[in-house]
Amino acid sequence: MIVIGICAIMMIVSLSALLLPLMLGSGKDKMLGWALLCLMTIATMGLYLSRGAPYIPSAPALFERSGPNFDKRQAVNEELALLDRLAQKPDDADLMLALGSARMKNGRLPQAVTILETARQQKPTRKDISEKLGAAYYAAALVAFLVEDDTAQAGLYFDQALQTAPADAPYKDRLSEDYKKFQDEKD
């Protein structure tokens, strides 16, 4: 609220200093002064909202409906909403699965693995959780190997992925192929 107040004061002072001489004039100048005041206020607010409200990075801008910033904010919002719900129901494995999926989508793979491991401990028989956890380990292994060049960590993640993923997981064949390639390149 303080920030909004200071921004409002800044805008009032700046625009008054700029337009007051025109607005206090007569006839055409007065009209022009008021018209410019409205136009500049709308332009400033529009530009500000189109760039997002930066003091709340996770809040989507009012006019932003697409683009990388919008997607990022949406994903963060989704994750925050799931965290809120999980705080109310800390043992809900479905919420943990949804949060793990959201974190995977955001590229936060180690965090996704952590929450999916907790979900699997809660419901060890659930196949969908094991499948998602295997996918998270698989993605983390690829990132560790291809991006971070950390073969030791990638090996650990590959092992976990192979152990966790169910036999009929849709990515199981690709996982086995990539693991072979990884072993070949490592040697």
Binding site: V3, I6, C7, M10, M11, S14, T44, Y48, R51, P54
Partner: peptide, 11 residues
């Protein structure tokens, strides 16, 4: 401070 800077820049 960055929020104020952002708004000042747009203004």
């Amino acid at each position: 401070i960055p929020e104020l800077g952002h708004f000042a820049f747009i203004l």
